[in-house]
Design a protein around this nucleic acid. Structure first.
Lengths: 225, 225
DNA sequence: CAGTATCCATTTCGATACTG
DNA sequence: CAGTATCGAAATGGATACTG
């Protein structure tokens, strides 16, 4: 960490937070990840060495607390770390408002499905096991099909057929699904425009947008403070 | 600028903003600086080459607009740039709340006086010319004495005697003055503890804290949202 | 005043492989 | 699972001097 030599609190904060990846790691911890490889899932392009380094640095700064219960290490935000929710949110809302364009490299079906799986409003789903399949038509075959399930109060996602009955099939492109998830487009408009189609009983088709919803940030943006 | 390869708006925002110095340049522009060397005053430890590079980068990203009226270049934030006030504020409030410790290198009388000069509530000062001298007792002689003046609706600061009558003398240490300015301590407590003394007529001595006030961020922090 | 030019030490980071 | 070890390429940025 290099310093700025300024008393200004913005500078003091940036000394800690302006390093590459740092705030994304915090975002993952805010989203609820507790273990090393759980965090990694949210920042798959970060090398484990670097993640380790960042976690250590955050620990040194009193933002993260690491506890090693026997063999399993657990990471948690301290109160100071939890208070970064304001920074992460401000950053995200600004990004959402002003950086609409995503390059091809920004689109990642793994990342998208993982984020959806952990964010969807489980309470809005039916009681029993419910499975939605996603067919992404513009993606290499091995990452084109995903199964998202809710059973009781647990959600799961995988890229292979888990063998259960499928309640709905969402067919669309990765970019479209990402844009809807981010809140750049609405389910309604996309469905009407035909850039997304949903298969299933008519009840289910009507319900799917409510099952999936949108990213946490999009929900915040929809309720302008 | 390197990329993160994530669709997440936080990542997209950080791609633009996580480079060293970037957000501090934005802070300066938000504070009202319009010209190259004006911005420099707020980030004196940044090399001009790098400042130039950052301004260009901000311009490319649609955050800053540069206009060259003849020979004088002017920088201004675009609406997108102005909207970063939320990010800068969140960052600053977090820094203020959680990073209290300042190293010796973080203390800079130039920077402090410059920030005070541009932030003080001029309307709270008397009508005629009013001069406050600062004597910093723990600073090298050549940076230990400062004159802060208000005349009409213009404030000024310098490190040499401008030759006007002095209305008040504030004697304290650089660290104390910085802490008060940031809002870490209050004028009242510092005066009572004797870590600051103010010379002048009793009316003036009572008025000085109100003339000086505190940094913009400290004012925001004092009104918890 | 408003920047450029140059140069190099240092850091940083990504890739890959490996370990208890 | 939860990291560490190693290495080299790239870039980052600080210092300094210079220009129209």
């Amino acid at each position: 960490m290099s310093t700025y030599g300024q008393f200004c609190p913005v500078a003091k904060a940036m000394e800690v937070l302006d390093e590459r990846w740092t705030l994304l790691v915090v975002r993952e911890l805010l989203a609820g990840s507790k273990h090393f490889n759980e965090v990694r899932r949210g920042v798959p392009k970060m090398s484990p060495t670097l993640l380790s380094k960042r976690l250590r640095s955050l620990e040194r700064h009193g933002i993260v607390e690491r506890t090693s219960n026997g063999s399993r290490a657990t990471y948690a935000l301290t109160p100071c770390g939890r208070d970064l929710v304001g920074v992460v949110t401000a950053m995200g809302l600004w990004g959402l408002r002003w950086i609409g364009e995503m390059g091809e490299d920004d689109l990642d079906p793994h990342l998208l499905m993982w984020d959806m799986q952990r964010t969807i409003p489980i309470h809005a789903w039916p009681r029993g096991r419910t499975v939605v399949r996603f067919d992404l038509d513009d993606v290499a075959p091995k990452s084109a099909r995903w199964w998202l399930m809710v059973n009781g109060d647990v959600s799961d996602v995988c890229d292979f057929d888990p063998g259960h009955d499928i309640d709905a099939i969402v067919s669309t492109g990765l970019r479209t699904l990402t844009r809807i998830w981010r809140g750049d487009e609405s389910w309604e408009l996309a469905l009407r425009a035909g850039s997304v189609t949903v298969g299933g009983t008519s009840d289910v088709r009507r319900a799917v947008p409510g099952w999936l919803g949108q990213s946490t940030l999009a929900q915040l943006a929809a309720v302008p403070a």
